[in-house]
Amino acid sequence: MSATPARTSARTRISTRAVAVGIFVVTVILAGVVSFYAASTPDGLTKVSEDEGFADTETEHGTGDGPFAGYGSSFIDDERLSGGVAGVVGVVVVLALAGGLTLVLRRRSPESGHGSGHTAESTSS
């Protein structure tokens, strides 16, 4: 085995940026295109609630008449486009919220000294 600590510098490793772009592209394709082909039968809980007879206890949803309710875009007629746009909007909103949150959490903690010293790469040896 060649002694290559995978953690620090593999020979030609794919950059973190490239991995991030790759995940983003796959995510947008899944939400924007592939989602059209998803099964439209009721999901596990919905089906069970129908079979066991408590589906009708569901009450009206507070944002049920929003522009993207039910993963469609109410302002677009074409079914494929309507769902695709809603999916991409969702991806962008989730990415902004979750990405922003982790960014804030990270900035507020300038190198906590606990744990296994993952952040100390630059100062080793």
Partner: peptide
């Protein structure tokens, strides 16, 4: 840190992809 937001977005996208399981359920 850079991946956390993307993982959330990926989960959102994947949750749109209902796959069929037995008996008219997904």
């Amino acid at each position: 840190a850079p991946l956390a937001g993307l993982v959330a977005a990926f989960i959102f996208a994947t949750q749109m992809l209902n796959f069929p399981v037995a008996g008219g359920t997904s």
